[in-house]
Write a protein that binds this DNA or RNA. Structure first.
Length: 826
DNA sequence: AGCACGCCGACT
DNA sequence: GTCGGCGTGCTC
């Protein structure tokens, strides 16, 4: 293709499309269309999107008509060039499309698409008698409401397909369709009240107040509140909303004072980032072991860029982080601190705020899109203007996508945590691994911190790819908690058990409570009862959309599917045999909470799981209550394992370890060891604590390692297994997940796909297997597993895999199979 | 992801 | 007849 002299832009659309799309750059935009800026383009018949320019070139595309770029939205690119490069890497490694990355990476406020708005055509002067009944209804509706969306019209006409109607109306010249993209960002405006310059004199003020006292007491209240607030804050202005609330006066009173030129109102544009006021804490002294670890980390960074910090729970890793962060900020570098979503509590953020003040930015999914955009643009402008203060961003996995260009350090805390991996939708990336890649691209250092390293990271550390630093002392010489195993078979035989609680656990709970200390109880399942069962024929109520038993939730008296959310009321009689003997089987957090309340009527019990934390502040409320000592016992799922540090917890109980350890998955042991060790670590932060693990399999090797706090032993044992069965870290896995609505069709397509893939991958391909849950949302599921030698580059695998899939999909009977690729599944 | 187009069964 | 369901293919 010869250069045409004209310019073309390859853009990324915010859609899960395979490729870039090419648009012509009109002359007027030639200087402003550069990689990383957003442009408005038409895609399809109607819709407009804000797309990101990936590259600009002069090769005229062949085989289709090129549409023009309609507008340029940014003067300054919203993506840096290093990000565009890293997106390319992500798409190669995680086998996903650039559009999918855009959806995950860009704050939604930057991703714009048009919505059609239907309006009357003003120049229509004809006779409405040309309209049929429906068209006339739309016409009339536009009388009342000048603009309608497609949804509105669908509702008005109560039909699904409105487009034929509208098309006819456009043809008759009655209506027009407006299509435009609108920026979603709305700057925040805050009102401030200050004293009018002419009212500053004390004498006139005194006189004024005297007169107000008689004539307008509300205005006086307001003025007094104003003086008090400004004095307390040491400032000469005050937030309007705060003033009104404090004084109890209404808007009217305030307005009269403004009108009288006593007070002045000023509206200012402000960002939504938290602003820290108050004095920052001075650096603190690390203890001897932390100091030692810090030195080792610094030394390690001089050689290798990635260091694994293996520090037992409560060894004070955060203090070490704070020192490292301070060091980087001092050098003018940016710092990224990644945490699993759930560990991002206000507890930790408050603590960091006291050290870093407004240099700390927070970025996670509980933030709204406006706040996320402000963090994004702040990072961008920090890249451009090196005179600005450097800062620290603390965030969940999506924070790796922020447009850093001056990274000095990335900390990945709780690096073993599986929630760093995005499962669905694509890009199925692991934020920890992406953080390492991003950091190395910018020559930054990476610290992976955890009490229970992942097999992969520990393997990398021992093989010399990463440096390893160990911190094995807890705060103030505190011992690790005593871990006891209760054999449920044995205590059941000897009748030393009440419901789900062994007498030993109950006794200890009572003792702990009488000492005014606290208890955490862990149960892996939420809800009341994992399933119901007919006592006569063993029929179990199942989800209509998925191949799973419905979970009984007592508080709402309903059966619920934890895969698709389907809800129904519990059956009164068995659907199979008609008997009324419906029994609850198994137990979840809700059941634990209720049973325990009966056994310990005095105890104040709260529950922390997905069901009790549905609203934005629920999580914080429950944790706050526990921290303040208003709750004695916290019952929870995995949520209680992460980053919760409470000084007065001296007992942790695990109701049933078997549900954690017996999963049909190669990571079951690793996950179980991590979980049990992490939960145990919640016990005894001030004085030695105790952990009681109830199980039917007290001889499980994993339990032995947990009991002895033997990470190294566990690691050796597990690594041996991984080697024998050829699993990571000895190879790389790609899971190929297939979905289809008809099971037989699916099986046929799977066999065919298997045949095609095996031509290339031979014995490296396993499957198809039927997953444990084999139908979700009315779609049947199958999996293939590809085991790839680590010596083979993923680029190569991508090419082979895509080539095989291409051949497979070229047959029209295979098109309806949906295929998801998951690299490094967890 | 949308959206169009085409084919099919089921209703005013 | 036409509405809606669904499968299929395309979008620069």
């Amino acid at each position: 293709m010869a250069p045409s002299g004209k310019f073309y832009a390859d853009v990324i659309l915010p859609l899960p499309l395979r490729d870039f799309y090419t648009y012509a750059v009109p002359e007027e935009f030639e200087s402003s269309v550069t990689p990383g800026v957003r442009v408005v383009v038409q895609f399809g018949q109607q819709k407009l999107y804000a797309a990101v320019v990936f590259r600009v070139h002069q090769q005229q595309p062949k085989g289709y008509d090129v549409k023009p770029v309609m507008n340029v939205l940014d003067e300054i690119p919203v993506l840096t060039t290093s990000q565009l490069k890293s997106w390319q890497w992500i798409s190669d490694y995680y086998l996903c499309s650039p559009g999918e990355i855009m959806l995950a990476a860009l704050p939604s406020a930057l991703r714009l698409q048009s919505e059609s708005r239907i309006v009357r055509n003003e120049s229509f002067e004809g006779d409405t008698s040309v309209l049929d009944d429906r068209e006339f209804m739309v016409w009339e509706a536009l009388e009342l409401q000048p603009e309608l969306s497609l949804k509105d019209i669908s509702k008005i006409l109560s039909i699904k397909h409105v487009i034929p109607v509208l098309r006819s109306m456009i043809h008759k010249g009655v209506i027009r369709v407006l299509e435009e993209v609108q920026e979603k960002y709305k700057p925040r405006h805050v009102d401030y009240i200050s004293l009018h310059p002419e009212s500053r004199e004390e004498e006139s003020l005194g006189a004024l107040m005297d007169s107000l006292e008689r004539k307008a007491p509300r205005q006086l209240d307001l003025l007094l509140a104003f003086f008090q607030l400004t004095r307390d804050a040491g400032q000469d202005e005050v937030n309007k909303a705060m003033l009104l609330k404090k004084s109890g006066a209404g808007h009217a009173a305030l307005h009269s004072l403004i009108k009288k030129q006593v007070l002045v109102l000023e509206t200012r544009r402000e960002d939504r980032l938290p602003h820290f006021r108050g004095t920052l804490k001075e650096p603190f002294q690390l203890n001897q072991h932390q100091q030692q670890a810090l030195l080792e980390i610094q030394r390690a960074f001089a050689g290798r860029k990635v260091t694994l910090l293996h520090g037992v729970t409560s060894s004070g890793k955060t203090e070490v982080y704070i020192h490292l962060i301070r060091e980087q900020l001092g050098k003018g570098k940016q710092v990224l601190y990644l945490l699993p979503e759930i560990a991002l509590t206000t507890q930790l953020i408050q603590r960091l705020l006291r050290f870093f003040g407004s240099q700390l930015l927070v970025y996670h999914s509980r933030f709204n899109e406006q706040e996320r955009l402000e963090v994004w643009t702040k990072v961008l402008s920090n890249n451009l203007n090196t005179g600005q203060q450097p800062f620290l961003v603390i965030g969940a996995r999506s924070a790796v996508f922020l447009p850093f260009e001056r990274l000095g350090l990335v900390i990945v805390d709780e690096e073993h945590d599986h929630s760093y991996k995005q499962e669905d939708p694509a890009p199925r990336y692991n934020a920890r691994d992406l953080a390492v890649v991003t950091a190395l691209q910018q020559d930054a250092e990476v610290l992976l911190g955890t009490a229970t390293p992942s097999m992969e990271s520990f393997f990398n550390a021992l093989s010399g790819k990463y440096a390893l630093v160990t911190l094995d002392r807890r705060h103030a010489g505190l011992d690790l908690p005593d871990v006891h195993v209760v054999d449920l078979r044995d205590v059941r035989k000897r009748k030393q058990v009440s419901g789900h609680f062994s007498h030993r656990l109950l006794e200890r709970i009572k003792e702990v409570l009488s000492n005014k200390e606290q208890v955490i109880l862990f149960q892996n399942r939420r809800g009341f009862s994992p399933f119901l069962e007919c006592g006569v024929c063993a029929w179990v109520p199942e989800c209509v959309n998925c191949d799973v038993a419905l979970t009984y939730h007592k508080s709402r008296n309903e059966l619920k599917c934890h895969y698709c959310g389907y809800v129904q009321s519990p059956p009164v009689v068995c659907a199979a045999c008609g008997d009324q003997d419906i029994r609850m089987r198994g137990f979840g957090t809700e059941r634990i909470e209720e049973d325990l309340q009966i056994l310990l009527p005095e105890a104040r019990i709260a529950r922390l799981d997905y069901d009790t934390t549905r609203n934005k502040n629920d999580f914080q409320k429950i944790l706050g209550g526990f921290e303040d000592g208003e709750i004695d016992i916290l019952v929870g799922t995995q949520m209680v394992t992460k980053g919760l540090d409470f000084d007065r917890v001296s007992l942790v109980g695990i109701l049933n370890a078997d549900s954690i350890l017996h999963y049909p998955e190669f990571r079951a042991n690793e996950r179980g060891f991590h979980l049990l060790t992490q939960v145990s670590g919640r016990a005894g932060r001030k004085k030695p604590g105790e952990v009681i693990i109830q199980t039917y399999n007290p001889d499980s090797p994993v339990l032995k390692f947990v009991l002895n706090h033997d990470y190294a032993g566990f690691y050796r044992h597990e690594l041996n297994e991984r080697f024998r069965f050829h699993y990571p870290p000895y190879c790389r896995l790609v899971e190929i997940r297939l979905r289809h609505r008809h099971e037989q069709e699916l099986d046929r397509m799977c066999m065919e796909l298997g045949k095609e893939l095996r031509k290339t991958f031979k014995g490296h391909l396993l499957g198809p297997t039927i997953p444990y849950v084999n139908r979700v949302r009315n779609q049947y599921l199958r999996n293939f597993l590809l085991k790839i030698d680590k010596t083979v580059s993923t680029r190569e695998v991508k090419q082979q895999l895509f080539a095989a899939l291409e051949i497979y999909r070229s047959k029209s009977e295979n098109r309806s199979l949906s295929i998801a690729l998951d690299v490094d599944p967890v």
